Simulated scan of single mutants.
Amino acid sequence: MAVYASHSAIQILLGAREEGLLTTIFGPPESLRLYSRFPGLVNKALEYSGVDCLSILKDEGHVLIPSGSIVEYVGYDAIVKSGIPYFGLKELIKWESEWDLKLKLLNEAGIPIPKTFKDPSQVDTIVIVKLPGAKGGKDFFISKTPREIEVNLEKLKENGKIKSFKDVCIQEYVVGTTMYAHYFYSPIFDRLEITGFDIRYETNVDGMKRLPPTLTKNIQPSFIVCGNIPVYPREKLLETFIEYGERFVKTTKRLIPPGIIGPFCLECVINEDLEPIVFEFSGRIVAGTNIYMNGSPYLKLYWGTEMSVGRRIAKEIRIAKDTERLTEILT
């Protein structure tokens, strides 16, 4: 298993070790140091130098395990060019990286999503403006006036963060509690498994909660993820979450065959009617699963024992290899 040195690498490496699979971690030298601190966690480390590095990993028989860092720092083109086997739905990287495709997929699945605006001039409510890619909330901002949005977008354009206004998603800000639902779809068992839920701990918006409103009116909130917190939704919500996941799986099979493989996440706000509104998705493991590094209680419902999503990935690969069905989980 080839794992990028960031994001959710520790639990993936640990899960591979628990399932008896070998691993190579790759990334910039300054990132690799962390993983060498934990005895026996890594079998091999490799400095990342672009497509050539992926080609080396391919020649050595590795399977690439996607994460947010793979989406953001390696990218679809390098993965395709290298030809390295990819655990998951490789084409979903393109859909996850472009807002129009991402929202199309959720709409086609019949999953409730917030209202979106094509142009700042259309905005008539509080919105959150989001950049493309897996940036962990960096440079997102909230606004309610078209002029303010245009000014902020011009600054992002001047700083090279976006090429045009079309790069961003202007989305209605739904008031409610955030909840990120984690899933795993297994082609080997033809089964959707719910693996857990988290809340993202974001700076500085979460820190602003500790200040009186009179002191925060001139502070621009930011949404940079710095950690994750476990959350257990009410059982009456579980059926809704499972139905959303099933719709997502079914729609990816129709629009992007062979469909989703392995972990994914639906990122939600729960409104006052207890309806989850999905504002985006991640088509691979999310860092929020790190809260279950010692094992998810939800996976115990399927396997009789708690396990991390990292181990669940390794288990799917090991079972597929043992039963000669690797082609069903690799793209």
Rank of each mutant, 00 (worst) to 15 (best):
Q220V: 11
Q220E: 11
P221A: 03
P221R: 10
P221G: 09
P221H: 07
S222V: 01
S222N: 06
S222F: 00
I224T: 07
I224P: 00
I224A: 09
V225E: 14
C226S: 14
G227E: 07
G227A: 13
G227C: 12
G227M: 10
N228P: 03
N228M: 01
I229V: 15
I229F: 11
P230S: 10
P230A: 08
P230N: 05
P230Y: 07
V231H: 10
V231M: 09
V231S: 12
V231C: 10
Y232R: 05
P233I: 11
P233Q: 10
R234V: 11
R234S: 12
E235M: 13
E235H: 12
E235C: 05
E235I: 12
K236C: 11
K236H: 15
K236Y: 14
L237Y: 00
L238W: 10
L238I: 15
L238S: 06
L238N: 00
L238E: 09
L238Y: 14
E239I: 14
E239A: 10
T240S: 13
F241P: 01
F241E: 01
F241Y: 13
F241G: 05
I242Q: 08
E243W: 02
E243G: 00
Y244N: 08
Y244I: 08
G245K: 02
E246S: 14
E246L: 14
E246W: 03
R247E: 06
R247F: 08
F248Y: 15
V249S: 07
V249N: 06
K250P: 00
T251C: 13
T251L: 09
T251E: 12
T251W: 10
T251R: 09
T252A: 04
K253I: 05
K253Q: 14
K253W: 00
R254P: 05
L255E: 11
L255G: 00
I256N: 03
I256E: 09
P257K: 10
G259E: 06
G259H: 02
I260P: 02
I260K: 00
I260F: 05
I261W: 01
I261N: 04
I261R: 08
G262M: 04
F264A: 01
F264V: 09
F264N: 00
F264G: 01
F264Q: 05
F264P: 04
C265R: 01
C265P: 00
C265D: 03
C265K: 01
L266M: 05
L266W: 06
E267F: 01
C268R: 02
V269Q: 03
I270D: 10
I270C: 11
I270F: 13
I270K: 10
N271M: 04
N271T: 08
E272T: 08
E272R: 14
D273A: 13
L274W: 13
L274K: 15
L274Y: 13
L274A: 14
L274R: 11
E275N: 10
P276A: 01
P276Q: 06
P276Y: 05
I277G: 05
I277M: 08
I277S: 02
V278E: 08
V278M: 06
V278A: 04
V278L: 04
